[in-house]
Structure formats: structure tokens, C-alpha cells
Nucleic acid binder design. Structure first.
Length: 1000
RNA sequence: GCUGAAGUGGUGGAAUUGGUAGACACGUUGGACUUAAAAUCCAAUGAACAGUAAUGUUCGUGCGGGUUCAAGUCCCGCCUUCAGUACCA
């Protein structure tokens, strides 16, 4: 009987769906286990073979846990708000909701055909109003919360108002904006309602703030840093200005320390933890206040990690954007400073960062006063100081910091040395450990640690500084000038934001005529005509009705992509609840994700924001745990093989791409060769040469040229490269020439000649097709989708093959070359249960060998799954099936448990054979076979007999043989005598059950 | 520059605690079946050398050292590749 995978797979996919085999209940006697994948953005391109890698791994684990008796939650959904659908809408006018729906349907169909055990009754879509209702709800909770630094948690805003009424804000230790003024309880009570709201906004966890953005007036939109080149927009070349815009921000920075601490408690990959740690960027030091001379009351606050070097300060540098620049610049310096500030403003932050080598700056003419020596310290501005980090100002210690050093050298500023016995004539000395301070008054002869402590103490005494911990992590901007995102549940009364009551949610995304910003530069929602809030009837009404008394304008920005993904994992626990975000019963049962699988590219985005929201929701009693995912695994990317076509303009002769050339032409990729027409002709005629060439093209080509042409010199005049839509015939290495020709019409033909190089002979130029491995992307024409593989080999083959490619966490190129191997394995597995056309599994007693194979396999597979080493368990199955086939095993006692072992990996074939064994129920929840050691117990061991660590022969000996007897037997062996050739061994090492090593 | 990961046959990769390096598969070669091809099955396959052969010897896990009876694995010093990040004060 044939292994008809198409029929079998369709049959069981239907069965699972109809019987809701994988539906998870929120109550169970079984222990819970939550296996989660990062949900995909449903792009128009559909799934490619890289997507399912993580899904297959998590599916294997989920299925395994079901066999192990767990109540498994394994859901899937879609992160369906996003830019591509909006871009498509702008181009075509097609509503993003329609495109999104179509894409989701295609994703679903693709996912279904791979046979995942998702509980589809729990599907979520972030763009679904029933879902974003709760995104809006969380936003309201954030708005209605403030952060109590003493309690180290978020609290209700009412608590804060109560405190203000009682004692003003002078005693409170809360996270807030920097420029909050002090007020008493009486002040508070006499404030107008609007004033009070303004103050509260400075404390809320989500708040409106002026944020600098790159605004392009001609395009009417905000641009990201990488959309700007040389101060103008990449598209169109229009000027871009840094503009302050009112935007919603999230006060994530107050969670910096807790986000850092929480990393200790989760089992996440170290690289991922490291990148979050870097991103949060904690540094310990001190803030120091310098008075500005001749400017009463003006001070410059700096953050430094080296307060011990304070006597080494010889100048200060402000970021050009620093607010003090205008006020302290002297008239003489004004022109120069203004010019510098303007020039800097034109450059994007990215450009400034990229250009590290150029040293630039201007003296402001002003002087600050050193807190201890009272000496004047010149104040400069320089673009190496970033406004967005620390206070936007530094105290420059050129002897201890290389950038300060370079700056001082460049502008001829003094470089006082405060390090004992250190030469600073060439470079700064930044080695904290070996620091001994000198020329520093009361810090003399102290090391880094003591000097730091003492300096901070002295600064505190003066009231000019204190110990401080600084974080790189900034508050997150939460507004986007886009259409396809969650609308804010916010309307404005007299310019002040008001939350819509949660009971009126969701606020639906309004319909618009076009998805671009309005002519006046408002976000796309500015185009909506039905976009005003009627506070009488609590509903969205037409903009005409705005009267600023009962009907008010609604917020025009939408939320960013990370909003919905920051809590979706919790919503899966109770996804259809329309009363609450999720019931407390549900969240107390499922609690957190036990295993989360996804890409490492989300390290500092999704995975940081999610942890932030989780901690916030924990503070407010919505969720029971502070970390949402106990264990996380980053699956490696599956890379695509891109075809590049390189065009070489050569003048005669031919040439091999050698090492030198590789280095000289950056576009030329590894192991490529290109040849003249003449040689190509020769190759075509001479099959033997072609074959030889294929086996070792570099050497052969070299030989050919040395013999026939005699020289090797010509240099390409021009090298162009471009991604080409190259197709390979039947997954082989043969180019699909026809398709290729359409793309590059001047090509006459293409032939395959080497493993990594191809020659295409054009009319006048020589083209070479090179291949390179890179990320799969539509624009690179290197996407492989799983549909054809499912069709040609089946889902079980795809699942096994993706696992067999290599370790889960490792990046690996996609290559279908080995797919027949796993497909053959499934065919062999099928055959094992059949005798010719007939299904044949009998009740015969298993042999010792049968049992040994089975139990060896149980042990290995169980260990492998627990270690997420899925590639090695596929090998283990192959070995098991090969062995059982050789043993001619058809004993039910062996073949039945074998199916359970394989079913997480290849569920369709397992279900089919399981039902053929006479079972009515799905294999999905059948208990995992139990490994019994007794079947693996051996009485003998084949010992490797080594001489000086090198194995010379093998000898089978009883395992219970004593060391003495082993030695005797081995020494007596003729081969031992042969090896020793009369010498007496110095030593004989015997590790029973392992090895014998004779040292001679 | 910094941080992290990784370098093993022609290829993807095994070797979980220092104990037979190269499991399993792909590819290649030879053979069987076939009019032929595909499919399938069988055998060989790290490299070099010696031998008709059985077999033997030497070399081999990026490079150079070290520890050990024994090192892909541990230690020291480098090199290369990939990923992330960067004037972070």
C-alpha cells in the first residue's frame, strides 16, 4: 500500500478540526502548560519556509506535553495592524481591513496544511475591535496611573490627587516630568481644573509631551531616521526639519531597574538578556551641578561615571540643542555658535552618530565654575554630546576620556593630568582599576572606588551633586501618524486630553477617504468625517457637530505596532470575554507562558515593551505575575539563497577570481569565476572538461588558462550586481533559464558550471550568477514557500525536514537538497507497518533486540525534546526504523509506542497508522511511552583498546569483569603484544565500561 | 570599538558529564532491477601513503601553546565569520 501523504494529511487535518482535538479548557485536573509562538504579521507574500520553523518546534513541544499528561494551551493569532497593509491601501485605495482579511485567510490555509495543533477557538487579531477594545482599555489604565517610587509600583491616579489635596507635591517621591513646579495643598486647591489636569499629566504613566521628530512639510509626514539622507527626505529630496510635536509617551523609564532585575528570574537566552541589559543601559555615577559664571542662577547639570576625576575637568561640552546655549553664549561668539547649531540641526541623529571621526565644536564664550577649585571652566558646544542622553552636557576630563582628549587636542585646550605615574601624552587613560588619583586636593592617592565615594560626599556637602544611577532607556513614544493602528480612546476638551469611559469601548477606527496625512499635515485620521466625541450620548459622531461644549474632537494619532503585541499572550487565556480583558479565573489558572518561541529581532522591542506592560498590569492587580514568559527560545532564521547577477565589462582574455580580486572589488562575492565566450564554447563542446571543471573548477580553470592562454591578468572594468529572480528547476541547481531571460533579455543562455559560480554568456559582456545566503525577503527574490513542499512531499516531511536542518537556535540556509532523505524515512516507516500492500502488525512477542531499539529510542527522544534538540531526534527515529526494518519487526508491542514517539514530529502519518492499529481515538493525548532501563542492560562491552591514546583494536569483554582480569586479558591478547613489540607498558589505564589505554 | 554566538569530511550536521571523532542524512562512485529512464534496493565513501589483498601506518575538529594516560570538549594567547550595538559621558 502506497504512502499517500496528501490524502492522509487532508484526512487528519479535517479530523482534528471537526473533533476540536486541540481545544484547551480553562479548568483541568491536569497541570497546565502554555506553549506560545510569536504571532505573525500577515503579509501579502504569505508564509515562507522560515516562518514555520519556530511553529514546528513549539508544536512538537506542545504535542509532547499533551502526551506527557499536561493541559496544553497552544494558541495562534495575528499581529494584524501594520505598515504594509497601509502602504498598499495608499497605493490602491483598497481598505487595509480587506487586504488584512485576505492575507489572514491565506496564512490560515498555509498554517493548516502543516498540521499544527493550535487551538483556533482562541485566535486573536490585533486589528479586531473586540481585541483592540482591550488595548484601549490598558491605555486608559496607564493614563489613570502614576508611579510611586517609594512603594516602587504604579498606583491609581486618585491616590495621587488625594496626596496633592493633603500635602501638595513637595513630599512625594513620584516619577514625573522634569519641569514640574512645586506646590502646596492650598496651591492645589486653588488651581483651576485645567491647571490640575496639566499637573496630573506630568505624573501619568502615559502622558502627552513635546517630542522632537523629523518632520517633512512637503510630504506632510514624520520620517524615521533612516528615511533621511543628507538632511533631506530619501524620497523626493525635500527638506526635513526637527520639529517638536505633541505625542503620547509611555513612562517605561521608571521601570528600568525592575526590567533589569526581572531578567535574573527568567530562563531566556543570554544574548537576548544582554541586549536588553545594554538597551536599558544602567550606569552608576554622580550628577554634578556647575554654576555658570556671570549668569546668576544658571547652572549646568552633568552626569558622570567618574566623579573621582572631577579635578581633571578642563572644559565642559553641551549638546548643540542644549537649552542653555542661547542664554549663555557671549555676543562675540554668537555668530559662530548659531551657525554651528544650525548646521547640526540639519544633520539627522543617525548621520551624527555615523560620523564619529570628525571633531567639531564651538566655544560659547561662557565659563562655568569648578565646584571645588572655583576656577573658570570654558563651556563649549559639540555634537559629540547627545541631547538625548543624560543631561545633554558633559564635564570633560580629557586625561581620562578619549573623546574629551581628542576634543581638547583638536582645540588646544589644556589636558591636566590627575593620574599618578601615567603617561597621557598620546592618549587618555581610562583604566579604572589601576587608577591612582593625584593633583586632586582631597582625593590625592586614592583609587577609583574610594575617590568616587569621597568626591560624591564632598559634592553633597556643597549641595552641588549627588550619587546617581542613569539609564539609557528613554520613555517610549506611543503616537503614530498612521491610519492602520489602534485609535486612542481620547478626546480633547480645551486642549486637555480626556479618556472615554471604558464602558463605551471599543472606539472603532473611522473610515477615511484616503490614507495619507491631510493637507494641513494632520495624521490620516484627520480625513475622517465621523470623528468627534459626543459626551451626552457617549458615541462617535460627525465632525460637523463639534461645538466644544458637548461634542469634542478625537485624537488623530493611532497607537504603534507594539501596542497589541504587548499583552496578547494574556488575552489568549480568555479571548472571547467581552466583559473583562480576561477573567481572573483564567489568568490565575494559566498564569504565564511556559515556553515562548520566536525571533531574536524582537529583543529590544516587543519583548521589552511586553515586560513593561506586564509589570504595570501586575502593579495594578490585573495579572498575577511580573514576568509573562518563563522560558524563551530564539529560533534561528532560515536564510534564503539569493541569486546575484554580476556584469563584468572585460576587455579580452579571461580570468579567475582569485583572493586578490575578491578583496579589490567589494561587489564581487566569494568563489565566483567568470570567463570569456571562448572558454564557454569550449566547455559546451567538451563535456569531459565541463565535468572535470565541476569537480574542482578553480584548479581546473587555472590549469586550462596556463596551458592555453598563458596569462591570467585582465581586470574587470566595471562590476555591477543586482538581485535577480532566479529560479532553480525542480529544486536542483539548474537555472530556470526561461524565467531568467525574461528578466534580462540580452542574455542568450545560462549554464551551470560550478557549485558556487555560474556563467552566463551575454552579447558583449560577461555575466556571472553568484549565490549568496541572506535573509528571506520578497525584494530579494529568494523566498521559498512551504506550499509546494507540502504538495510534493507532505507536511510531515516538511516538519521533519525543518527540524533535521540543524539546531533550532542556529541560523541556517534553506536548501531542499536533503529533503528526500527525510521523505524516504517516512516511506520506510510506512513500510515497517506493511507487508507489501497489506497492513501487517501482529501480536507477536517482541524480541530482545526489538525492545532494545524501542527503549533506546524512547530515552533519546525524550531527552532530545526536553533539550529542544529536535534535529537529533529525527536521526534517532531514522536509526530506530532502520534497525526495526532490519530486525523484520512487526510486533504491535513495539510498533504502537513507536507511533506515539513520532507523533509530535509527524502527526499525520502517526494518526493514520494509529487508526489502522484499530484505535478510534486520536493519538494526540495518549500517554508517552515509559523508558525501561532493563532493556538496555548489556552483559558485554566492546572495549576500544588504545595505545598512548590511539585506538588500535577492539575487544569484547564482559561488563562485570574486574579491572585486574581486563588487564590480564588485554595484555595477553596477541594484538597487544604485536603493538608493544616487546616493550613493557609504563601504565595501563582501565575505565570499566569505557576504555582501556596502554601507555608505553 | 564593545557585547554575544560560532568555526568539525564535498555538504547539512552528530559526539549531553574529558574516554572509539565524523552518528544520521545529502552528495558522489560502483552494482542490482529495467529495452531505457525514474523510483527502489545493496555496497563503498575524512585525507595521504604502503600493500594483489586482508590489512597497516601517518595526518586530521580555525591557528599557536599548555594541562592530562586520554582534548572537538578544559586552560592561556591569537585568527576568521556571523549577529547585535555604538560619540552613553
Amino acid at each position: 500500500m502506497q504512502y499517500d501523504f496528501n490524502e492522509i494529511e487532508a484526512k487528519w487535518q479535517k479530523f482534528w478540526s471537526e473533533n476540536q482535538t486541540f481545544k484547551a479548557e480553562n479548568h483541568s485536573d491536569k497541570p497546565k502548560f502554555y506553549v506560545l509562538d510569536m504571532f505573525p504579521y500577515p503579509s501579502g507574500a504569505g508564509l515562507h519556509v522560515g516562518h514555520p520553523l519556530g511553529y514546528i518546534a513549539s508544536d512538537i513541544y506542545a504535542r509532547y506535553k499533551r502526551h506527557k499528561g499536561f493541559n496544553v494551551l497552544h494558541p495562534m493569532g495575528y499581529d494584524s495592524f501594520g505598515l504594509p497593509a497601509e502602504q498598499y491601501a495608499i497605493q490602491t485605495g483598497q481598505h487595509p481591513a480587506i487586504t488584512t482579511k485576505e492575507n489572514i485567510a491565506r496564512y490560515r490555509q498555509q498554517l493548516d496544511q502543516i498540521g499544527f495543533s493550535f487551538d483556533w477557538s482562541r485566535e486573536v487579531r490585533t486589528s479586531d475591535p473586540q481585541f483592540y477594545k482591550w488595548t484601549q482599555w490598558i491605555f486608559i489604565q496607564l493614563f489613570n496611573s502614576w508611579y510611586d517610587k517609594d512603594a516602587d509600583k504604579a498606583r491609581a491616579i486618585e491616590d495621587l490627587t488625594a496626596i496633592f489635596e493633603k500635602e501638595g507635591n513637595t513630599t512625594i517621591n513620584a516619577a514625573c516630568d522634569e519641569d514640574v513646579k512645586q506646590f502646596s495643598a492650598t496651591d492645589w486647591k486653588t488651581m483651576s481644573a485645567k491647571e490640575q489636569q496639566q499637573i496630573l499629566l506630568q505624573y501619568r504613566l502615559t502622558y502627552l509631551a513635546e517630542t522632537e521628530v523629523n518632520w517633512c512639510p512637503q510630504l506632510g509626514t514624520v520620517l524615521a531616521n533612516d528615511e533621511i539622507v543628507n538632511g533631506v527626505s530619501e524620497r523626493g529630496g525635500y527638506p526635513v526639519v526637527r520639529k517638536k510635536m505633541k505625542q503620547w509617551s509611555m513612562r517605561i523609564s521608571v521601570y528600568a531597574q525592575r526590567l533589569l532585575d526581572g531578567l535574573q528570574k527568567v530562563d531566556w537566552p543570554q544574548p537576548l538578556k544582554d541586549s536588553q541589559t545594554n538597551w536599558i543601559g544602567r550606569s552608576k555615577g554622580a550628577s554634578v551641578t556647575f554654576d555658570v559664571k556671570n549668569h546668576d542662577g544658571e547652572t549646568i547639570e552633568v552626569f558622570t561615571t567618574r566623579p573621582d576625576t572631577i579635578f581633571g575637568v578642563s572644559f565642559m561640552t553641551l549638546a548643540p540643542e542644549h537649552e542653555l546655549v542661547d542664554r549663555i553664549t557671549t555676543p562675540q561668539q554668537k555668530a559662530a555658535v548659531d551657525a554651528y547649531v544650525e548646521a547640526t540641526a540639519k544633520r539627522s541623529e543617525r548621520e551624527r552618530m555615523a560620523d564619529v571621526k570628525t571633531i567639531s565644536g564651538v566655544f560659547t564664550g561662557a565659563y562655568a565654575e569648578h565646584p571645588f577649585t572655583k576656577e573658570p571652566v570654558p563651556v563649549w558646544i559639540g555634537d559629540y554630546v547627545l541631547a538625548s542622553y543624560g543631561t545633554g552636557a558633559v564635564m570633560a576630563v580629557p586625561c581620562g576620556d578619549q573623546r574629551d582628549y581628542d576634543f581638547a587636542k583638536h582645540f588646544n585646550i589644556a589636558i591636566p593630568n590627575i593620574f599618578k605615574d601615567v603617561d597621557i601624552s598620546e592618549e587618555a587613560f581610562a583604566d579604572k582599576e589601576n587608577t591612582v588619583i593625584t593633583n586632586s586636593d582631597f582625593l590625592n592617592d586614592l583609587g577609583y572606588k574610594e575617590a568616587t565615594t569621597k568626591a560624591i560626599e564632598a559634592l553633597e556637602e556643597l549641595g552641588q551633586g549627588k550619587g546617581k544611577i542613569n539609564y539609557r532607556l528613554r520613555d517610549a513614544v506611543f503616537s503614530r501618524q498612521r491610519y492602520w493602528g489602534e485609535p486612542f480612546p481620547v478626546y480633547y476638551v480645551d486642549g486637555m486630553p480626556q479618556m472615554i469611559d471604558a464602558e463605551h469601548l471599543p472606539i472603532h477606527l473611522p473610515e477615511v477617504e484616503k490614507y495619507l496625512p491631510t493637507e494641513t499635515g494632520e495624521p490620516p485620521l484627520g480625513n475622517a468625517t465621523e470623528w468627534a466625541w459626543d459626551t451626552t450620548n457617549n458615541e462617535v459622531v460627525s465632525n460637523d457637530k463639534i461645538d466644544h461644549k458637548t461634542v469634542f474632537p478625537l485624537e488623530l494619532n493611532t497607537m504603534p505596532g507594539w501596542a497589541g503585541s504587548s499583552y496578547y499572550f494574556n488575552r489568549y487565556m480568555d479571548p472571547n470575554n467581552d466583559q473583562e480583558i480576561f477573567s481572573q479565573d483564567a489568568i490565575k489558572y494559566w498564569k504565564d507562558v511556559d515556553l515562548y518561541i520566536g525571533g531574536s529581532e524582537h529583543a529590544t522591542g516587543h519583548l521589552l515593551y511586553s515586560r513593561f506592560w506586564q509589570k504595570f498590569l501586575f502593579d495594578r492587580g490585573v495579572v498575577p505575575v511580573q514576568e509573562f514568559a518563563k522560558k524563551l527560545i530564539n529560533q534561528g532564521m532560515i536564510l534564503g539563497t539569493s541569486a546575484f547577477v554580476y556584469r563584468f565589462d572585460i576587455t579580452g582574455g579571461a580570468l579567475v577570481l582569485n583572493e586578490d580580486l575578491k578583496n579589490s572589488a567589494s561587489l564581487v562575492k566569494k568563489h565566483m569565476i567568470f570567463v570569456s565566450k571562448g572558454f564557454l564554447e569550449k566547455l559546451k563542446e567538451d563535456k569531459a572538461l565541463l565535468r572535470e571543471f565541476n569537480s574542482n573548477f578553480k584548479d581546473k580553470l587555472q590549469k586550462y588558462f596556463e596551458n592555453s592562454v598563458g596569462s591570467f591578468d585582465p581586470i574587470p572594468h566595471e562590476v555591477h550586481s543586482i538581485h535577480a529572480p532566479v529560479e532553480f528547476v525542480n529544486g536542483s541547481d539548474q537555472l530556470n533559464v526561461k524565467r531568467f531571460k525574461n528578466w534580462l533579455p540580452e542574455l542568450e543562455e545560462a549554464i551551470f558550471i560550478g557549485e558556487e559560480g555560474r556563467i552566463i554568456d551575454g552579447e558583449n559582456d560577461v555575466y556571472v550568477v553568484g549565490r549568496e545566503v541572506e535573509k528571506m525577503s520578497k525584494s530579494k527574490y529568494n523566498v521559498v514557500n512551504p506550499d509546494n513542499i507540502c504538495k510534493d512531499y507532505g507536511a510531515d516531511t516538511l516538519r521533519l525536514y525543518e527540524m533535521f536542518l540543524g539546531p533550532l537556535e542556529q541560523a541556517k540556509p534553506w536548501n531542499t537538497a536533503g529533503i528526500t532523505g527525510v521523505h524516504n524515512f517516512l516511506k520506510k516507516l510506512w513500510k515497517l507497518y506493511h507487508n507489501g500492500e497489506v497492513f501487517e502488525v501482529t501480536d507477536t512477542e517482541p524480541t530482545k533486540d526489538n525492545l532494545k531499539t524501542l527503549h533506546k529510542t524512547i530515552k533519546k527522544v525524550e531527552e532530545d525534546i526536553e533539550n529542544f534538540s529536535f534535529n537529533t531526534s529525527v536521526s534517532t527515529f531514522m536509526i530506530a526504523v532502520n534497525e526495526l526494518t532490519a530486525q523484520k519487526c512487526n510486533s504491535k508491542e513495539i510498533l504502537e509506542p513507536l507511533l506515539i514517539l513520532i507523533s509530535p514530529y509527524a502527526p499525520h502519518i502517526a494518526e493514520e497508522l494509529w487508526s489502522k492499529l484499530g484505535h478510534q481515538e486520536s493519538i494526540a493525548t495518549k500517554p508517552f511511552p515509559v523508558y525501561d532501563e532493563k532493556h538496555l542492560v548489556e552483559s558485554t562491552k566492546v572495549y576500544p583498546i588504545s595505545f598512548n591514546g590511539k585506538k588500535r583494536f577492539e575487544l569484547e569483554l564482559p561488563l562485570d569483569m574486574s579491572k585486574e582480569n581486563i588487564e590480564k586479558t588485554v595484555m595477553a591478547h596477541e594484538k597487544t603484544q604485536q603493538q608493544l613489540a616487546g616493550r613493557t607498558p609504563k601504565k595501563v589505564i582501565i575505565v570499566p565500561g569505557k576504555i582501556v589505554n596502554i601507555v608505553g
